[in-house]
Design a protein around this nucleic acid. Structure first.
Length: 209
DNA sequence: AAACAGATCTACT
DNA sequence: GTAGATCTGTTTT
């Protein structure tokens, strides 16, 4: 992963840096506009919190790979694995703007406004054609050209942060970042059964709903 | 072999 | 803005 030396940095530093990155897969490219950080074994909201399982095995592996998981009986979401092996941290790709292969994305998503083609983590995967089979794939294009993540370089203005969407525990931790005012960013939603507020991993100023 | 739980989505008022 | 459906992969007996 020569282009991504900082994927080994703490995930809350890596996550906002992925804003603006281009993710390509199978004919569609998306410019990432919204991300969330999950700090592996230290983070109660993380899939890796209760140790390694078959499902989250990819999270415990090398950085720069795609962690895809299945949820709600019909959805797949994708993360970029970060940190040293064993750390099991990852960045959830929550939303993006389709900048390439718009027609193909429309075909995959059906009749929705273009703004919403990749709005929401599961929708983003659908637009890109990502599935459970892509779990564990490297993002540097080393095993073929189907999948690749490209660094936008430094930059990025108008970034806001706030609590993570839809997590039951640890939701107060403001580890979601997005481009302010971008129409492709998903709406904030608190988990229906969210725990009572507890001290987050990184208490501090929040902006959110 | 069975129960569980879910980092959501769409539709609807 | 809010309410409700939904159903498979994963985990656990």
């Amino acid at each position: 992963m020569p282009d991504w030396p900082d994927l080994l940095a703490p995930v809350e530093q890596v996550a906002p840096r992925l804003l603006g990155a281009l993710l390509r897969h199978d004919g569609v490219a998306v410019r990432i506009t919204e991300v969330e950080a999950y700090a592996g074994t230290d983070d109660p909201a993380s899939h890796a919190f209760r140790g390694p399982t078959r499902r989250n095995a990819t999270m415990h592996g090398d950085a720069g790979h795609l962690y895809c998981y299945f949820t709600y009986g019909m959805h797949v979401c994708a993360n970029v694995v970060t940190g040293e092996p064993g750390v099991a941290s990852a960045v959830l790709l929550r939303a993006g703007e389709v900048v390439e292969g718009v027609d193909l994305a429309r075909t995959r998503r059906g009749a929705v406004p273009d703004d919403r083609l990749a709005r929401g983590p599961a929708n983003l995967c659908r637009a890109l054609g990502l599935g459970l089979a892509d779990d564990g794939s490297p993002l540097d294009g080393s095993t073929g050209t189907r999948l690749a993540l490209t660094d936008p370089g430094p930059g990025g203005t108008g970034v806001r942060r706030g609590p993570r969407v839809g997590v039951r525990t640890g939701w107060a931790t403001p580890w979601r970042w997005w481009y302010d005012g971008d129409p492709t960013v998903s709406a904030y939603r608190r988990h229906p059964r969210a725990d009572a507020a507890v001290p987050g991993l990184e208490p501090g100023p929040q902006q959110g709903p």
